[in-house]
Design a protein around this nucleic acid. Structure first.
Lengths: 280, 280
DNA sequence: CTATACACTC
DNA sequence: GAGTGTATAG
């Protein structure tokens, strides 16, 4: 038996908007720890990891670990039927092949329940090893989204270079080149407007902008984004989910040597990594 | 000779937005009582009835009953040329095969007149018999619109069930099922936010969501909608036009017995009905 | 947060 | 015409 009551239902709506473009089907894993998901994108290049910790729910009952395969598009359709300040409850029964989403309006006048068929999805649950990162950049999520969108009008890939002074996003395309430098800047009015760079060593890596732009669908989840970089390792783009956990996107860097044009995206290494701070 | 001056011209604009998706051509009937229209939708499934009472006009002159056939799309095009706070005057001459719409800006700085060709439309003026309804639901029009829109992402038909406790909207589709229950609720800040159920007997009827969603185009006309239901009778979905009358939509229920899948929409009964309260 | 309006796109 | 996103007002 499973019953997860989330007062701030809009968080779940935003989580689905954040991942459904990248992943079509996925298993949601429910345990005492929380509600989580891990999946590769359909072209098997990027990886999404979601965690909503049990403490973040108003009521969290999960009698035993359970994995529920869902079509994220269909799930998103149903969640769109919830109001933004509705309370969302996820219900499941152990034997059942369905999951129920219940939406309660704040004043309790409207109660909706949506039942969705589950699906069998075989997912290799990938272990994501811990890793030390050469550089960790925290910046406003809207700024990062704007940069990725702007650069993708010029080129297909972005080179992210971090030095003590700042982080540089560069691209090159038919019509020209672009470089956007964000200086470290902690003296801002609000902490969420700060750009903070934690750097052990300079690092410069190349990524496909197409995926970066998918990742920025998570922008509404958090005012800030944390980007963790190390040579040879997949970048981690993390959006915190308020008081509950995170959505993390992993993407392997492109092999940059010898000016290889348009390498087909591929996970250049099997190694996956995880930002050092477990959360928050 | 015909001259109808409507100070709140935006009402006429909204009326046309409300019905033009459903009905392409229709006769407007003008009499001492008011300005009215009655027409089946193009697929002959739903019926629209409009009444704007003469008392609602600042000036109302109609020497003798007249029926003017108009293409609602063209009429809507012309009305879109009126400002939202323009005064609209409808003018016609007995012999003429045109109608003139005059738009006056509030400060009288701008006066426009649009002349539109009339058309010959043979319409059986359907008598709509009075009827007693088992249940009459009044609810916020935006909420009803939201429910119809949400449910149509899941299924094609909606089952509307009324009990003393509330009204339930249900659907079923490939990806799952949905039920939305709105409780009777009169203790709200504003009367237009109330959900009020007048019920003689419980009732449960099935309708095509496609038409319901067309009906909700009338939402801007009124903050509330009144839904009148009886077994075997067409549902009446009514939007009041402030101080003037109403737009009513009639739709026959689908035959629900034996789990008939996807019955082609058809007026299951010739009987049409009319909500008990003549207006207000 | 909702609603409205407007612009833009398909 | 419908939907999307944005902006802004309540």
């Amino acid at each position: 038996m499973l019953e997860l009551r989330l007062v701030q239902g809009s968080l779940l709506k935003k989580v689905l908007e954040a991942v459904k473009d990248l992943v079509t089907d996925a298993n949601f894993d429910c345990s005492a720890t929380g509600f989580s998901l891990q999946a590769m994108d359909s072209s098997h290049v990027a990886l999404v990891a979601l965690l909503l910790r049990s403490e973040g729910f108003e009521h969290y009952r999960c009698d035993r670990n359970i994995s529920m395969g869902m079509n994220l598009n269909n799930m998103s359709k149903m969640l769109k039927c919830a109001g933004n300040d509705d309370i969302i409850t996820i219900k499941g029964d152990d034997g059942s092949d369905t999951v129920t989403f219940m939406f309660e309006s704040p004043n309790q006048d409207k109660i909706a329940d949506f039942e969705m068929k589950l699906m069998d999805i075989d997912s290799e649950h990938l272990g994501i090893p811990e890793a030390e990162y050469h550089a960790i950049v925290k910046m406003p999520s809207t700024e990062f989204a704007r940069i990725c969108k702007d650069l993708s009008t010029i080129g297909d890939t972005v080179v992210i270079s971090v030095t003590k002074e700042g982080v540089k996003f560069s691209t090159r395309g038919d019509i020209g080149t672009a470089n956007i430098v964000c200086r470290q800047n902690t003296s801002v009015d609000k902490p969420e407007e700060a750009t903070v760079i934690e750097m052990k060593e300079p690092v410069s890596l190349t990524f496909a902008l197409r995926y970066m732009n998918s990742f920025t669908k998570a922008t509404p989840l958090s005012t800030t984004v944390v980007i963790s970089l190390s040579p040879e390792l997949p970048v981690v783009v993390e959006y915190k989910v308020a008081e509950m956990g995170y959505v993390r996107f992993y993407l392997a860097p492109k092999i940059e040597d010898d000016e290889v044009d348009e390498v087909v995206e591929q996970p250049s290494k099997k190694s996956k990594a995880q930002p050092k701070d477990e959360d928050d």
